[in-house]
Design a binder for these strands. Structure first.
Lengths: 150, 150
DNA sequence: ATTGGTGCAAAGGATTTGCAGTCTA
DNA sequence: TAGACTGCAAATCCTTTGCACCAAT
């Protein structure tokens, strides 16, 4: 199930196959969006997908981008990342990993695998089951004078 | 500055002292908001503060709530928590701890201290310094049928 | 008088929704 | 053809802003 290799000159059929594997009807727009997302591992907002997708010709509308990203996330193709109160990021790398978030630049980046083990996981609240553990390592630019907050 | 009336059982002077300690001018509205936040450790959204505060008589406007919560967070009295793409929560407990987030109910709760140690913290990206590490343990209701996502 | 704080309403930005037209199976 | 999908515009929700008024030094 993890055998799909998506390269830079992404052949369309692989995106289609990917969608089919996840029981998603591979419409033209969804395939285009998948091609962008899986061209390389990346963190994108809906707005970035929209502009990347439509940079040359219009390929999908705003509503379709939102619908599709939401669908992909619910189906497990991509992962929603909530670090910025103003927008949602989507990560095309769904493997188990965590993130740096630079609060000054808004830049989100992966923490290489093997780092940051969490030990001593606590019991879950009554009546709940685990979904996942997100770790956000918030950083800021070294030159920022954080002492002068007002 | 001591002419403020005491309307409930919370002694005003302690909130005032707290604000002064953090170099915040203790205006009437800020004291009211602080009293709500520090009545007990809790996680509240701006909207919840607004309605708790104004449930009987109007004590502060929406703009003031947002201004004040932002100010308190920048000054370090409270902590901003980003777990829900639709709104920001504020935690009146600033001690080092992490959170459960129930994605079904939107309920946010503390993980008791002593649990969930992170080991093997990775190096920081070039030119950045640590701000803090947030861990969100996402859970869902046990009875939720997560297989039936569509 | 000057600076800082507050409140109202309007503006802003991300996301969702209603609905008509279009495509897929 | 029925049901699913798309696109446009309008609507919604949270948050911020502009600006006039008020408070404190």
């Amino acid at each position: 199930m993890e055998t799909l290799e998506v390269t830079n000159d992404t052949p369309k059929y692989s995106a289609i196959e990917l969608l089919l594997e996840y029981s998603i009807t591979p419409t033209q727009q969804r395939v285009e969006i998948a091609n962008i997302l899986f061209a390389r591992p990346q963190h994108v907002s809906a707005e970035q997908v929209l502009s990347q997708l439509n940079s040359e010709q219009q390929k999908a509308s705003k509503a379709t981008i939102y619908n599709t990203l939401g669908l992909f996330a619910r189906k497990g193709l991509i992962r929603e990342i909530i670090v910025d109160p103003t927008k949602v990021f989507y990560d095309s790398n769904t493997s188990d990993h965590h993130h740096y978030y630079n609060v000054d630049t808004g830049m989100l980046s992966d923490i290489e695998d093997g780092h940051m083990l969490v030990t001593n996981l606590p019991a879950l609240p009554e009546g709940t089951v685990a979904e996942r553990v997100d770790i956000i390592y918030r950083v800021r630019n070294a030159d920022t004078d954080a002492g002068n907050i007002q």
